[in-house]
């Protein structure tokens, strides 16, 4: 049943890939281009892992784009101040997790809807990133961090950037957590019917705080990856990325009404987004066409899911 739910997004990914492969057979299927796609998926893919938890719980998080920028700035600043690369990366991830924690605490503590809370923290995180960076890009020596996002890895046997493997590894772990642990079941239960979860003794606020902290953590990690890719901390980066992330999760089969969705689908959704972006660049299609296409795909994906779930009921 779970495999079947991946079929739709997978068919979409194959169709879109086939389309570009036919259109640009030489460039699209080249090793370098496939490696580019794999590396470009990492940022949205990591964000989508965290976002899947949020959306399955019937929530939404608009802050990851800004948090990615903040985490990239924090990582760069730590490196510039002479921190080791791993400690700097950790600082970046921690800054994201901290923002997620704030999101969760505000949503459960003030009982304000996630849309509004994260709309607020979206601005706050972006502002903090700009402030910390002194309104400019932070140049810092990346050391080995840059190799994490190398499109052509220096260890050729890896085939794709280490960051892609990190994303896959975390996707497997997150998939296990979401489907096989009590926390995961409670996440689905809250999204499916929060009153039922409460009735059954689920500590709803606690679970929600963990969910948003996780989402922040993954956005923070995506920010570290963004730094590794650009090798600068940029407070203006990843503008609007939260929408790509949400789109990836929704294309992957999650319902914004909660209770439905999975990590596998979200990763496929993230790949679909980067294949589209890459293919449009290769074929020389202007950016605005790409935006129109992605927008159309989101609407179609959700509409198809509606029809399917109605038939199931």
């Amino acid at each position: 049943m779970r495999i079947a739910s991946l079929l739709g997004p997978l068919i979409g990914l194959v169709l879109v890939s086939a389309f570009f492969a036919v259109l640009e057979p030489d460039t699209f299927l080249s090793t370098y281009n496939l490696q580019t796609i794999a590396a470009q998926t990492v940022i949205v893919g990591l964000g989508a892992i965290g976002m899947t938890f949020v959306i399955v719980s019937a929530g939404i998080d608009l802050s990851p784009g800004s948090v990615i920028a903040l985490a990239s700035v924090v990582t760069a600043l730590a490196l510039r101040d002479g921190w080791s690369p791993s400690m700097s990366a950790l600082a970046g991830v921690a800054s994201g997790a901290a923002f997620g924690l704030v999101n969760g605490a505000l949503i459960t503590g003030l009982r304000v809807v996630p849309f509004i809370v994260t709309l607020g923290t979206m601005g706050i995180a972006r502002g903090m990133a700009t402030w910390l960076a002194g309104e400019q890009k932070i140049d810092a020596p990346p050391h080995w961090l840059a190799s994490v996002m190398e499109k052509t890895p220096s260890h050729a046997w890896l085939l794709v950037a280490p960051g892609t493997w990190i994303m896959f590894g975390l996707a497997v772990v997150a998939g296990f957590v979401l489907t096989r642990t009590v926390f995961g079941v409670q996440t689905y239960a809250i999204g499916s019917n929060e009153s039922t979860a409460r009735l059954c003794g689920v500590r709803v606020p606690r679970v929600k705080i963990i969910i948003y902290t996780l989402a922040g953590l993954f956005a923070g990690l995506a920010g570290v990856m963004q730094y590794a890719r650009l090798t600068v901390g940029d407070p203006t980066t990843a503008l609007g990325k939260e929408l790509d992330i949400i789109a990836a999760v929704v294309i992957g089969g999650a319902s914004l009404e909660g209770g439905v969705g999975g990590i596998g689908g979200s990763i496929i959704g993230a790949f679909l987004m980067s294949v589209l972006a890459d293919g449009c660049t290769l074929t020389g299609v202007p950016n605005y066409v790409q935006e129109i296409v992605i927008g159309t795909i989101i609407v179609v994906a959700v509409a198809v899911d509606r029809v399917r779930s109605r038939r199931r009921a």
């Binding site: 096989r180 642990t181 009590v182 926390f183 995961g184 079941v185 409670q186 689905y188 239960a189 499916s192 019917n193 009153s195 039922t196 979860a197 009735l199 059954c200 003794g201 689920v202 209770g259 439905v260």
Partner: peptide, 27 residues
């Protein structure tokens, strides 16, 4: 519909939601 059951959730998860059949948090 509104409180007793999470209608989209599986039969088994609804039934065991208050006391999941789990060890160390793993179902």
């Amino acid at each position: 519909a509104r409180e007793g059951l999470a209608l989209g959730l599986s039969i088994a998860d609804n039934l065991t939601l208050s006391r999941p059949a789990a060890r160390l948090g793993i179902v």
